[in-house]
């Protein structure tokens, strides 16, 4: 075992794995984490704790992860390259591991332009691929990026990365995934899949390259409550592919509660569809602002109870 995390155990056991997102609050309230942790407890392998997502200041992902841990929920700490240099990142990696964190997801990070401090300087001392390699080096070679030795207690982390099958250049996306695998990624969570057909084409390329045998790929899924959310993502978020039929389908439902039900149904259908795609090792649920729906979807998808490992 590289980390001994539950997520690692489930994936290496060949079980279909489930993670879900848990966004920290824009305040210092630990109860906000504890409440959301209840939706994850026993229902998922790991809860992704976002790192100042969309560049909006929130509680630190490592602090929030420590609170999740205290609730019995295994965190997947997200770490972006936007806000810290290699010194601060390695320091935080040691700190996270010391607090009991066993999964770390490495990302570039949303540009600060999209957040609430667009005036901020960004860092990007290293990029996400280099971050993956750095964490692997700390874990496997017991070395800091400088080459200095970590004499004992190296951070034992299951290394995650992300990939967006819907961004451009499409044909390069698999090659870049290959770089992340080469750098040391153990698992991949993808950008939200709405366009299953395009995702399947991307997975075909992933399988053709044999990457599914080197890394566990989890399909990102986002349940939505309205067609407006889909329209927003389609027009405002770069690198998203939202089929018009989905928008029309949500639009056709009038009642608010019925819309929610339709959103759940769509998500359930997508879980069914992505499970059938060769190379998909699990799903990552991102119910943006709708964390309470996580257990409902997992129950109805037949993904509960989670396997014992």
């Amino acid at each position: 075992m590289k980390s001994g995390s539950r997520l690692e155990k489930v994936l290496t056991a060949g079980e279909f794995a489930v993670t879900a997102e848990l966004g920290p609050p824009q305040n210092a309230d630990p109860e906000a984490i504890k409440k959301k942790a209840q939706y994850c407890l026993g229902n998922v392998e790991g809860a992704n704790i976002t790192d100042n997502q969309t560049a909006i200041v929130r509680m630190s992902s490592i602090a929030a992860a420590a609170i999740a841990l205290s609730c019995g929920v295994e965190p997947v700490v997200q770490m972006v390259c936007r806000d810290r240099n290699r010194i601060a990142m390695q320091s935080d990696i040691l700190g996270a591991a010391a607090l009991g964190v066993k999964n770390l997801l490495c990302l570039s990070g949303d540009h600060q332009k999209f957040g609430n401090h667009p005036q901020a300087a960004n860092v990007f001392d290293i990029d996400s691929v280099q971050l993956i390699a750095m964490v692997k080096r700390m874990r496997d070679d017991k070395q800091f990026l400088s080459g200095d030795e970590i004499k004992e207690h190296e951070p034992r982390l299951f290394i995650g990365a992300v990939e967006n099958p819907f961004a451009d250049p499409f044909e390069y996306r698999v090659l870049r995934l290959g770089k992340k695998v080469e750098a040391g990624a153990d698992f991949i969570q993808t950008q939200c899949v709405f366009d299953v057909e395009k995702f399947a084409r991307w997975m075909d390329m992933v399988v053709a390259e044999g990457l599914h045998e080197k890394v566990y790929i989890m399909a990102g899924l986002t349940p939505v409550r309205s067609h407006k959310a889909l329209e927003y993502m389609k027009t405002e978020v770069a690198g998203m592919s939202i089929p018009d039929e989905l928008i029309k389908r949500m639009q056709a439902v009038e009642d608010k509660e019925a819309k929610k039900e339709e959103g759940i149904k769509i998500c359930l259908e997508m879980i069914e569809q992505v499970r059938k795609i060769k190379g998909v090792a699990g799903i990552h649920l991102m119910p943006i602002g709708w964390e309470s729906i996580t257990p409902v979807i997992l129950e109805r998808a037949g993904l509960l109870p989670r396997p014992e490992v």
Binding site: S108, H111, D127, A167, Y172, A238
Partner: peptide, 20 residues
């Protein structure tokens, strides 16, 4: 590149343009 990536592109590249 708005993120100075050496192993880019990030996930925000769409239709040849930068998300920023």
């Amino acid at each position: 590149c708005a993120k100075k990536l050496l192993n880019g592109p990030c996930g925000g590249s769409a239709n040849g343009k930068c998300e920023v």
